[in-house]
Write a protein that binds this DNA or RNA. Structure first.
Ligand SMILES: NC(=O)c1ccc[n+]([C@@H]2O[C@H](COP(=O)([O-])OP(=O)(O)OC[C@H]3O[C@@H](n4cnc5c(N)ncnc54)[C@H](O)[C@@H]3O)[C@@H](O)[C@H]2O)c1
Ligand SMILES: NC(=O)c1ccc[n+]([C@@H]2O[C@H](COP(=O)([O-])OP(=O)(O)OC[C@H]3O[C@@H](n4cnc5c(N)ncnc54)[C@H](O)[C@@H]3O)[C@@H](O)[C@H]2O)c1
Lengths: 223, 223
DNA sequence: ACGCTCTTGTGCACCGGTTCACATGGCACT
DNA sequence: AGTGCCATGTGAACCGGTGCACAAGAGCGT
């Protein structure tokens, strides 16, 4: 049911794959490929071909049977869905090891997410220039957001400061937040927050490794 | 999906939540709390209480009805499941912006994943000391893995070098890999690889933001 | 024009995960 | 011991996602 004025709802799982398709399609476009089949795109993205077709069926990007999809059209359509091909400036709260690395990452800029503002609570960090941007006091966050017209916030503070950082971002009008701190934070339901937990990723790997080796050195408490 | 039968199989979704429970439980233990109910643990972890109970039912950690779960017992049991409380040294391939940030992260060490080895292809980077560890040539990866007894590999190279980096890790005997490069890489099926794609995370946020604002896109690509 | 081939688009069955709802059973207090 | 209370543990419905399998349709060559 497509309603005028509203963008159709696309399943979360599909949305999560669109960026992957985008990457693959950019690669194809670079090498001059103009048409692509669901099978080859699937291979490129590491997913099932039927899944690709179903995903693309949610977009306004129909392919032609017997031929495939037009790379350029697909690219444009995915870009429209993912933020309307509009640039979304990002502000980072907490410019430590991770914050600096993220600031210097040019892949964000290329993807339409320029790092526009940096703030930190530490006076030793404030005033320093990182990747061409001067770090400003966290108290001036609202100003920074306003000046840079940032729409996305990244939290890279220690875990115990994450809730405060998120609160400040929401207060400043940010509605999309990426949180790298290993902490569960509460946000109003009109705010979209995503958690990136690197330590957790390693622990999940650890579980599977443990299982694989089956090396049970621990006191298995069997009932 | 592997079907090794040594240790009981735990659903993936549950495994992904165990580290979160672990964090919450550590917090509780620090503050001297000895018993915890599924409701409060759920709140702490940001999930549904019934879900917590079902998750914990997969472990050998049963609670007592009317009371709750013993924090210490739960902690021990989760630790056992997640890698048997054994330290899993990590080797990082690609010591650029991100690789350096990860090297300096003490949360990994605390979680049982000490950064034991660093390798890079750039002669300018090789030999430099990062977080107390000397960066070695990527050609010596197998040696580094052997010497450090690393069991986990992290790929933090540019995307176009990711497949090569992964191949080297597998060649060196690594069976658990965390890949930060935005690239789909192929691995033998006895290798466990997890993708961390930060740019994708931002793009997903962008989609929801785009939807929320309902700012009907005007830059409709002409046909 | 016709039929062959190729790929899309999708109905449908399957599966893992989530959540509700409630029976089960331990604990404390009288 | 009896009674009330409370939290666990789980059966079952529900839900979103995946992938097979196939019909529908486009292009092409004869
Ligand atoms: N470094 C990594 O590779 C890595 C990996 C995984 C997770 N993390 C997580 O990312 C977060 C940042 O890690 P890091 O290594 O950069 O830590 P860090 O200590 O190097 O940097 C944290 C920065 O946040 C600032 N800060 C502290 N409180 C603040 C506040 N209330 N408002 C604004 N800024 C504040 C500090 O001044 C510091 O500059 C941590 O939560 C960590 O657990 C980091
Ligand atoms: N920096 C970030 O915050 C960030 C964020 C998201 C994703 N990433 C991804 O992480 C990866 C690393 O990012 P970065 O900013 O650290 O890049 P970088 O260019 O700073 O570092 C890459 C490092 O990898 C090394 N390298 C190149 N080819 C290699 C090879 N074949 N073997 C071993 N080492 C090799 C380089 O010498 C360099 O030191 C990239 O794929 C990037 O897309 C980075």
């Amino acid at each position: 049911m497509s309603e005028v004025g509203t963008i159709e709802s696309i399943p979360d799982a599909t949305v999560a794959r669109l960026p992957v398709y985008l990457r693959g399609l950019l690669e194809l476009a670079d090498t001059g490929v103009e048409m692509v089949s669901s099978v080859s795109l699937a291979e490129l993205a590491g997913v099932n071909a039927a899944n690709v077709r179903k995903d693309l069926s949610y977009l306004h990007a129909h392919g032609t049977r017997g031929v495939g999809y037009e790379v350029g059209h697909l690219l444009a359509e995915i870009r429209v869905v993912l933020g309307g091909s509009r640039s979304s400036p990002v502000v980072i709260v907490g410019v430590g090891n991770l914050g600096r690395a993220l600031s210097r990452y040019d892949g964000f800029l290329a993807g339409g997410f320029p790092i526009a503002g940096l703030v930190d609570a530490d006076p030793m960090v404030v005033g320093r220039k990182v990747a061409g941007t001067v770090v400003r006091p966290v108290g001036e966050l609202a100003d920074v957001v306003a000046q840079t017209e940032a729409t996305v916030g990244i939290v890279a503070t220690p875990a115990n400061a994450a809730q405060e950082a998120v609160d400040r971002l929401v207060q400043a009008g940010i509605r999309s937040i990426l949180n790298f701190a290993p902490a569960v934070v509460a946000v109003p339901n009109f705010v979209d927050i995503r958690q990136v937990d690197l330590a957790t990723e390693l622990q999940i790997l650890g579980y599977h490794q443990h299982r694989r080796t089956g090396d049970s050195d621990t006191s298995l408490v069997s009932g």
